[in-house]
């Protein structure tokens, strides 16, 4: 369906048709590239990778955060990458892995959720959204097999029940509900260790955001592909909060204040 001329004919829904309320079924395969056709072996050093993202629960909902570095082979290719995106009003998707396909997955997923909401007149349950994303990761498998792995995190609050949830994935589309926190990307293991020591499910927003920023800082200390806060250019991690009021991102000043505390702590112990 590349033809967006004035003919609505092929877009008119058929009774009990196979497209139902999905956007992806409208665009594959011509807009979304056919995953089977890629041969990325020789491109390996030129593929841009995004790195550490994390999600954790706190008293009112969930926090999703990510560093800002993108790497290509041993080079830093970007210092202001965005890896955390609003998926809809009540959830966020964070991506790690091959940057191009990862960003596209985030965009396609957000469009898919909005499309469903408009067609059905109601939002999907949090589980329904997480399951849909698992399908997208699974569809990406042929590209993952060629080295362009994308591993997202999905977190949000169910719009109907108000229940928060975090879902993590593996490269072949496995979906796992995380009860406390989840990480993804090259610095993920370090970040997870950092969170494990400080995690408190009853923490307030400030404390939990501090834990997230600390975990990213620790990951950057150990993992060369994860970027620390850039104090010179004032580029800070993206920290998103999803609670009963929906999705919002902490502004630069708020994150800068959290970063200052972390830097101060490390300096005191150095």
């Amino acid at each position: 369906m590349t033809d967006t001329s004035f003919d609505l004919g092929p877009l008119l829904p058929r009774p009990f048709g196979d497209r139902e309320s999905s956007f992806t079924s409208l665009v594959t395969p011509s807009i979304v590239p056919d995953p089977g056709s890629a041969g990325a072996g020789s491109l390996h050093d030129r593929i841009v990778d995004g790195t550490t993202v994390l999600a954790l629960r706190f008293a009112d909902g969930v926090i999703v955060a990510g560093d800002r570095r993108a790497t290509a082979g041993n080079m830093i290719s970007r210092t202001d990458m965005r890896k955390v995106f609003p998926a809809d009003r009540h959830s966020a998707i964070a991506v790690a892995g091959a940057a191009g396909p990862a960003m596209e997955m985030a965009r396609l997923f957000a469009t898919e959720l909005e499309h469903y909401e408009k067609v059905e007149g109601d939002v999907l349950s949090l589980d329904g959204k997480a399951n849909r994303l698992a399908g997208m990761v699974r569809a990406h498998l042929p590209m993952a097999m060629q080295g362009m792995v994308v591993v997202p995190l999905f977190a949000g609050v169910d719009a109907h029940t108000g229940e928060p949830g975090i879902h993590e994935y593996d490269p072949i589309g496995g979906r796992y509900l995380a009860t406390r926190f989840a990480v993804s990307g090259s610095g993920g293991i370090v970040a997870a260790q950092s969170i494990r020591h400080r995690f408190d499910p009853a923490a307030d927003l400030d404390t939990a955001a501090g834990v997230a920023v600390t975990a990213l800082f620790d990951a950057a200390e150990q993992d060369s592909a994860t970027g620390g806060p850039d104090l010179v250019r004032r580029i800070y991690p993206i920290v998103a909060v999803i609670d009963a009021d929906g999705y919002r991102e902490l502004d630069d000043e708020a994150v800068a204040a959290l970063v200052d505390v972390v830097v101060e702590e490390h300096r005191a112990r150095a």
Binding site: T4, F6, L8, L11, L26, V27, H115, K118
Partner: peptide
Amino acid sequence: LRVAGIRLADVKGYQYAREDVTAKSLATA
């Protein structure tokens, strides 16, 4: 017709840019 319109708009906005989706082209369709 409503569902077809949402499909047309979402495909167009995904393929090009969000601001390229206009009421005029939808109404013409």
